[in-house]
Design a protein around this nucleic acid. Structure first.
Length: 150
DNA sequence: GCCAACGTTGGC
DNA sequence: GCCAACGTTGGC
């Protein structure tokens, strides 16, 4: 099973929102690399580390899993959505998403703690200039994180 | 609000 | 296909 780290701004969708809903469509990905991960590499049941970004306490806030195959992100067709893309059409959609299902909340594992752990030095999200909202997490990295999130 | 880093756009 | 300008991300 592959593990993914997925960033969300808690103002938009937090781990609490996901817990309430049970399952949410991961709307708003507008980066081709992140889209391609969902399209080409996501599998049902893949583990998701739910990361809160652009907020007072950035860090991993919970666990979830991939709960659908990729399908077109409906917000790209909605002229009233901030994610509207005028160049995308239903017959030729640019942007995809998957549904993500709640697993559990964890004690917040802050970005600072990720940075300080030697076993996580390779974590993609810590690389300088990283901006990808979806990044793969290696098995070795997951082993470390699993311990920290226990 | 600042700023580094990166992606995208569009003229040529 | 180059590359400058611009927009976005996201921690601080």
């Amino acid at each position: 099973m592959q593990t993914w780290l997925m960033k969300s701004e808690p103002d938009e969708a937090s781990i609490d929102d996901l817990e309430r809903a049970g399952r949410l469509p991961w709307t708003g990905v507008r980066n081709y690399q992140a889209r391609n991960f969902m399209r080409d590499e996501f599998r049902l049941g893949d583990r998701v580390l739910f990361y809160h970004s652009s907020c007072p306490e950035p860090g991993i806030a919970g666990l979830a899993y991939v709960a659908s195959a990729p399908y077109p992100d409906p917000t790209q067709f909605d002229a009233n959505s901030p994610y509207f893309d005028s160049k995308s059409t239903p017959t030729n959609p640019r942007w995809l998403l998957v549904d993500v299902h709640f697993d559990r909340k964890t004690a917040l594992l802050p970005l600072q703690a990720l940075k300080e752990h030697p076993g996580l030095a390779t974590l993609r999200i810590l690389k300088r200039g990283n901006r990808l909202s979806i990044t793969p997490v290696t098995d070795a990295e997951w082993q470390v994180l699993e311990g920290l999130l226990a």
